[in-house]
Design a binder for these strands. Structure first.
Lengths: 207, 207
DNA sequence: TTGGTTTGCCAACGCTTGTTGACCTGATCG
DNA sequence: CGATCAGGTCAACAAGCGTTGGCAAACCAA
């Protein structure tokens, strides 16, 4: 939209405020979702005036876009032996999620992706990078459907544990979770995909 | 809060309007979530005045509560042979979700449960009835963790297919989905749970 | 010291929201 | 026929929202 990034505050002296706003924004977006989060509340949490948020990020949407750029850590499956890749993936994501509870990135993304279609698209791209690409790089035949199935399972876990607080998943410890989910993930990595998620397969309606 | 349900319109002549409001409300809540849905929009869709919604349901929260009471169909696993129960459960839920796209109950619940804690609690109770109870009735040893894991997987599927529109899950046909997910569900039904999700197991920290 | 730029606060704008109360209308019933 | 009353409309309220423009103070280069 805008070419020059002509936002109000660009000087080096404004960095602390900028970071305070972003931190408050991420926390608020994670706690209450996009619509329910108010610029006034973010500004109050950051200890400055609401108009400052506008000067720094242009609009509420701009603030959200700035707050949702995250540095993701992509797992490398290649050195992991085939039979242990399921467990490795589950542990990788769950441990990252556990440690990122400070900045709330995951809940923040999940809460908003569900309400906001643009964020949902962005999340799809993110999951392609995070799941399908490593699977493809590890030499899997069909990373598309396989990655989607694994992604669905991990997202379901995240949803139940961090957003819905569904017991006993919400209060299980990490090792238990990994032990429980690893076989199912491994199954999707191992299973030969002769008849599975492919467009245009010969229809064989059971009913 | 109120003891006598003293809402404005209770006569039999108001039934069509009441149903029109509820249908419009479910559609709107499913499409846009709780906060984003306005009483004015619901009223317009139902072809009446916003104040009528207040007379019928008291408040926006009351409208939501009325719109979210649904009749769920609990699967009966007992006549299904053990080895086919995974496939049966996946098919049962996916087919119900596919056919309920007319009234949007599922998306409606998912969208709101993510933003609204009270709805999340309600959803947990609903999933207990829908998943854990049938598993327990079928004689499973440990329906709690097992049901939660299956629930997480099914919720992940629903989230990816109906809310996030994650490809290729979003546009896969039902039979493909069932074939893909059934083994993983079956795995959770079959697996012996010696070391799994139990509180108070001896801690064996890997790290 | 001077002068311009940056950082910030304040007060207000226009708008939408949920909600309310006064008024109309048409069916029902004595 | 006239009274009654539920079902429905209309206009307005107070509150909260994102957003804007003006103005004070702090900073830094000259």
């Amino acid at each position: 939209m805008n070419s020059g990034e002509a936002l109000g505050a660009g000087g080096p002296r404004s960095e602390p405020t900028r970071r305070a706003i972003l931190e408050a924004a991420r926390e608020a977006f994670a706690a209450r979702g996009y619509e329910q989060t108010t610029i006034r509340a973010v500004a109050a949490q950051a200890g400055i005036d609401p108009s400052m948020v506008m000067r720094y990020f242009g609009s509420k949407a701009g603030l959200f876009a700035a707050a949702s750029t995250t540095n993701l850590q992509v797992p490398d499956l290649r050195p992991v032996p085939q039979a242990k890749r399921g467990e490795f993936m589950v542990r990788h994501f769950v441990e990252r999620w556990e440690h990122s509870l400070g900045d709330d990135t995951l809940v923040f993304l999940l809460r908003t992706a569900v309400t906001n279609d643009a964020v949902a698209d962005e999340m799809q791209a993110k999951f392609d990078d995070l799941i399908k690409k490593p699977i493809a790089a590890a030499g899997h035949d069909d990373p598309g459907p396989c990655g989607a199935l694994i992604g669905a399972q991990l997202l379901g876990l995240a949803l139940c544990r961090y957003v819905l607080h569904l017991e006993p998943i919400a209060s299980a410890d990490v090792d238990t979770l990994v032990a429980d989910l690893a076989p199912a993930i491994q199954l999707h990595l191992d299973i030969p995909r002769d008849q599975l998620t492919r467009p245009g397969k010969p229809p064989a309606p059971v009913k």
